[in-house]
Design a protein around this nucleic acid. Structure first.
Lengths: 122, 122
DNA sequence: CAGCATCCGAAACGATACTG
DNA sequence: CAGTATCGTTTCGGATGCTG
C-alpha cells in the first residue's frame, strides 16, 4: 500500500499514515505483533479470515515501511519471526487514541474500566 | 464505507474507526470541515482531485456515521452546508496523534516547533 | 448549485494449487 | 513451514452527462 508509492506529496501526516495502515488487515497484524513476536503461521491464526497471499503482501508492505521486522532462521523446518520495530511500536501508540474513540463511540460505550487509556484490548 | 455495513463484529475499536475513515478522501474532508463549515462547492475546491460522485458518497457515509451534519437551505440557488458534529470533532481529535506520527516519521521530521502536539497543520 | 445515474477501469481482496 | 503463482471476484474510485 505504502512503501513509498506516492510521488511524494501528502496533504498531511494522517494521509501518509493512512497509506501505511490502509490494508484491510494491517491494524490487526500490528495488534497481534504488539502482544508478542509471531511466526507466519501464528499470525494466520491470530488474524482469522486473512489468506496467506494477503497476509504475505501486507507483511511485506509493513516491512518495507519499517513497521515490522522479519527475522529468518535458516533451519530445516523453515522459521520466520515477525516483530514490531520501534517505529511500529510508536505507530501502535499513535493508534491508541483512535482505538479508544472507536471503542467508545462505535462499539458499546466504555464497558471496560477506563483505567489509563492504555487499554487496547481485544 | 461504514454506516453499519458489517454484521456487527469488530475485533477492536481501531477496526471500526478505520471503517469510518477508510475512504480515500475522508480524512481530508474531516480536515477541511474542522476549519469551518463548508458548502458542497467549497469542499470540492478544498479537496483537490476528488470528483463530485465520490465526494457525495463520502459525505453521505460520514453523515450516516454521525460524523458530519448536513444542513439544507431550501433556497432558489440550492445551498447545502456541511459541518462537523461533536462526534466528528472528537474523531478529528483522536486522529491527532496519528497525524503527528505520520508527519514526524513519514514526512520530513519535525520541522515545525513541536509546540503542543495540537498541531494538525496543512 | 448540488446533486444523481451510468459505465468503466484499476486495485484490493479471496480461493486454490504448487514449491523450496 | 513459509511462502509463490495464478485466477476469479468484489469494491472503490474516476469520467461524463443529465436533472431539480
Amino acid at each position: 500500500m505504502a512503501t513509498v508509492p506516492r510521488p511524494g506529496a501528502y496533504a498531511c501526516g494522517i494521509e501518509a499514515a493512512m497509506d501505511v495502515i490502509g490494508g484491510k488487515w494491517k491494524v490487526l497484524i500490528l495488534w497481534a505483533l504488539e502482544k508478542q513476536p509471531c511466526r507466519f503461521g501464528e499470525l494466520r491464526r491470530l488474524v482469522p479470515g486473512v489468506t496467506e497471499k494477503v497476509l504475505t503482501s501486507h507483511l511485506r508492505e509493513l516491512e518495507g515501511d519499517g513497521i515490522v521486522h522479519r527475522e529468518v532462521y535458516a533451519e530445516v523446518p523453515p522459521r520466520v519471526e515477525y516483530s514490531l520495530t520501534p517505529l511500529g511500536t510508536s505507530l501502535n501508540a499513535a493508534l491508541g487514541p483512535l482505538g479508544d474513540w472507536g471503542r467508545e463511540h462505535l462499539l458499546g460505550g466504555g464497558e471496560q474500566a477506563p483505567v489509563e487509556s492504555t487499554g487496547r484490548a481485544s
